[in-house]
Design a protein around this nucleic acid. Structure first.
Lengths: 222, 222
DNA sequence: ACCTGAACACCGTTCAAGT
DNA sequence: ACCTGAACACCGTTCAAGT
């Protein structure tokens, strides 16, 4: 309005290319992860990421193509917590257990990434690809038939994703309530499990992982 | 505007209580399911349900408390496709296979319901409760220790949900692309699996289900 | 009791204008 | 090349007004 207005000198950035690059994909990804870690996925909006970085939401689109793309970046960071280091130094069953447990624990904290990773082409995720190579090598080393390796990996991964989902649910969802006397077998099973003092999600993960690993590694004669 | 305007006589409903009850929870649920079945979950909006029923979106809130509540109703309809009828007439392993397969097939078509059902209190879903009773009775009948039944059910269910997610993914996501020579074991496993001609999701479900059922039903001596 | 219509508080995303 | 700011096309949900 006033061309000599001293307010023209401002701390706030104006439109136009900034002198220093304020944004890049890595900074955006880390900011997104920080938001998720302390406020959860429902708080992860493009506006929240932008405001944390001190830019307008539209500025993000110079670096990421979409929110889906942003979630891919977060997934890549989060995959760091999955431990597939044991496959070249330990027995297969031990390496599988360690891998599966760390994988479940990571994704139990990142449920909304599960649908993202499930449809993500592995070629676009270096860490996912490195993980699959480690696990595949672990199976190959003990002489598995090549065509059975991918199904085994996918089966364990499916169990992991389902278990992560389950681990994030409240503890009391199995309470049959007023219908208890109409489902006596289920009610008895619930009460018996609860009396062990363990979370049913944890007991289920342990029992399922043992069964799956034992079942897969057992010699088959069909 | 004009008090003698003949347009006051209209086909469109006005505000106020209609002479016949046009809406109820069941009609809303069936309309929602119909939209999902032929246009998918991304088309399931409160506005779409309302417009199909010929009402304003806000009218739905006289019958459902939220979209989450609407999804519960859809889940209840969809659970009808899960077959838990074999547990009182067939061997446990056969009943488990039939149950798991139908359960996976249903939820592969209803992926967005998986997070809904994972946190849904069973007391609020009669069909979910009936299903758990059947499965629990199946385990009890063959003499399982009561405290092991719920973990076994939850483990299989976790595998089912993960497998449903996996079944909905595109077929070519495992293609390592330009990174192929850096992941030789994984590449070889992918090629070997593909040469079998089966979808890896289906091979994984079969292998995993066999391993899980065999592993769970095997006598344990720890 | 149960509808309409207007409004609210968000979303992700696009794009012209600026430097 | 990379930012701002305005705008768009949605969402789910609330609520006063009406019958």
């Amino acid at each position: 309005v006033n061309s000599v207005n001293p307010m023209r000198q401002r701390a706030q950035p104006r439109a136009g290319r900034p002198t220093s690059g304020v944004l890049d994909r890595d900074a955006i990804a880390r900011t997104a992860l920080a938001i998720v870690d302390d406020r959860g996925y429902q708080s992860l909006t493009m506006a929240a990421v932008a405001s944390t970085l001190g830019v307008a939401p539209s500025a993000l689109y110079n670096h990421v193509t979409s929110k889906q793309d942003l979630l891919h970046l977060v997934q890549e960071l989060v995959m760091d917590g999955v431990d597939h280091s044991l496959f070249d130094s330990h027995p297969l069953d031990q390496a599988l257990r360690r891998w599966a447990t760390s994988y479940r624990d990571v994704f139990a904290e990142h449920i909304p990434l599960i649908p993202v990773i499930a449809v993500l082409p592995v070629a676009s995720s270096p860490r996912l690809l490195a993980m699959y190579e480690s696990v595949a090598a672990g199976f190959a080393r003990v002489g598995w038939e090549p065509e059975r390796i991918v199904p085994a990996i996918v089966a364990i991964e499916s169990f992991i994703f389902g278990s992560a989902l389950d681990a994030s649910a409240p503890d009391d969802i199995f309470e049959p309530g007023s219908e208890a006397e109409r489902v006596p077998n289920f009610k008895a099973a619930i009460d018996a499990q609860r009396s062990t003092g363990r979370r049913s999600a944890d007991a289920a993960f342990d029992a399922g992982l043992e069964a799956l690993v034992a079942g897969l590694l057992a010699e088959r004669t069909r």
